[in-house]
Design a protein around this nucleic acid. Structure first.
Lengths: 253, 253
DNA sequence: TTATTATGTTACCTGCCGAAAGAAGAAACC
DNA sequence: GGTTTCTTCTTTCGGCAGGTAACATAATAA
């Protein structure tokens, strides 16, 4: 088994259980614990895992449970700004996809007042949020709920997307690189995102600056596939210039 | 269990109850109180908890804002009791369907500790509830989200159910009548419930007394299709007798 | 081949955990 | 109010599992 393959496998296990134990992984992959430690050190460097004593937990920006109060207030300004900017791209009556994630959740909150929307999402929190306070028609993708994240994955979701077409898709991404484009540690999530991109007229990438210069294992899309990028001011200007030169409408909020 | 995992768990308990007792946590997590103290010292250092004698409270002292409005205001005690009774019917490793509803949500809360379950539901709140605090595999049915209810309906859900088989199905019902059986005001919901009944080995009807002697529009099932009925003591004994005479294991909690 | 990367092994270090004992609180009692 | 009693907290220690670093070896690439 190739090292990259093994790391991919580790990430899969992480995605599945949202945590792993080194000893268990070492036995399963038939390598020494030392090797797994080295792998995890690498994955942590890439921001894809968060090491703990005895193992690692999934890095999702919130690697630990935070009280609701502070969860609400962490980066709320940034996300609210991204949400408001995203709203400008949406017209009444639009059909849109909201990818799973905290930034897209902020978008959901920002578009509650827009009339007559149809929203497709695989994030249960987004679905409930819009269900409670907006008049949008919300379609939730079905499938296996990913532990700890409240998002669905699976072939059912893929099938559903095969039969629809939407005006606009708001995509979240955990890893963005100028050469590699958008990548994702999980094969299933990557496939779902690919499908989302396929069925949308317009692709909007929404992401904060921490996701740049990172590479994960599965390719989702090239940067040129993106129509609009909305991000915060933490990205360095050379990168922004490079992205703009690809013809992407890049908005810093 | 990893130390980091345990601390996460402690924070979850804190979020839920806004206060915890060391002794209780120690027993629940199966470690010594000393360990919990150390964990709390750590969490306090990070500003996530505030230690008190015998336990800890949320740092800001405020009660957690319930993230999703729950209409679960009526008959809470009855529902909790029904949930506990329902748990007795479930064994480790079971596959089950939880119909949408507040009573079934109570069941979800009651079965969090049962290991190795696979749960299928069309209620987003149930999916999120189990996703957060249990190790169950949760499948959420996809489709159009019913405004204000947070439940999904549609052909996708029907298709999904066509391909599975479960050990046990917990069915909620808004209207029960001795002659008409179980009825429902919505054609789509009724069809979904019919499908659920079809794919389950055992059907458990869970409902509080307020749903009796009511008739709705669409027929879902006859009472004789039910294996077990769990309800509260508000149903009059003649009705209970009549139901028991149909061979239904009727449990009053 | 030579340089590079990947892996395992060893020795040593650190962090985690529970037990025990004394200190500090809280509660109950006179 | 003050003393007693019980609980909870802190400190300290030892044992142990996990982590680190350095080195040796094997696999791979140039």
């Amino acid at each position: 088994m190739l090292p990259a393959e093994r790391r991919n496998h580790i990430l899969k296990m992480l995605n599945k259980n949202s945590k792993i134990e080194i000893e268990v992984v070492a036995v399963e992959l038939n390598v020494s614990p030392m090797t797994i430690r080295r792998d995890l050190a690498l994955l942590e460097e890439q921001g894809l895992a968060y090491r703990t004593h005895g193992g690692a937990v999934l890095y999702n920006g919130l690697h630990r449970e935070v009280p609701y109060k502070s969860k609400e207030t962490t980066n709320i300004d940034e996300k609210e700004r991204i949400g408001r900017e995203a709203r400008k791209l949406i017209k009444e009556g639009y059909t849109l996809i909201l990818d799973a994630g905290t930034t897209t959740l902020a978008i959901a909150r920002a578009i509650k007042e827009v009339k007559n929307l149809t929203v497709i999402t695989n994030d249960l929190k987004i679905a409930l949020e819009l269900n409670d306070d907006s008049d949008a028609n919300v379609y939730c993708l079905g499938g296996l709920v990913q532990k700890g994240l409240g998002i669905t994955l699976g072939s059912e979701a893929q099938d559903f997307l095969s039969n629809i077409r939407v005006d606009i898709c708001f995509l979240a991404a955990p890893a963005i690189d100028l050469d590699w484009g958008i990548t994702n540690p999980s094969m299933e999530k990557a496939n779902l995102k690919k499908k989302m991109i396929k069925v949308a007229d317009q692709i909007i990438l929404v992401t904060d600056h921490t996701k740049f210069y990172k590479k994960a294992f599965v390719h989702v899309a090239d940067l040129k596939d993106i129509d609009v990028l909305i991000t915060d001011s933490g990205v360095d200007s050379k990168t922004i210039e490079a992205i703009r030169s690809l013809g992407i409408d890049t908005r810093i909020v």
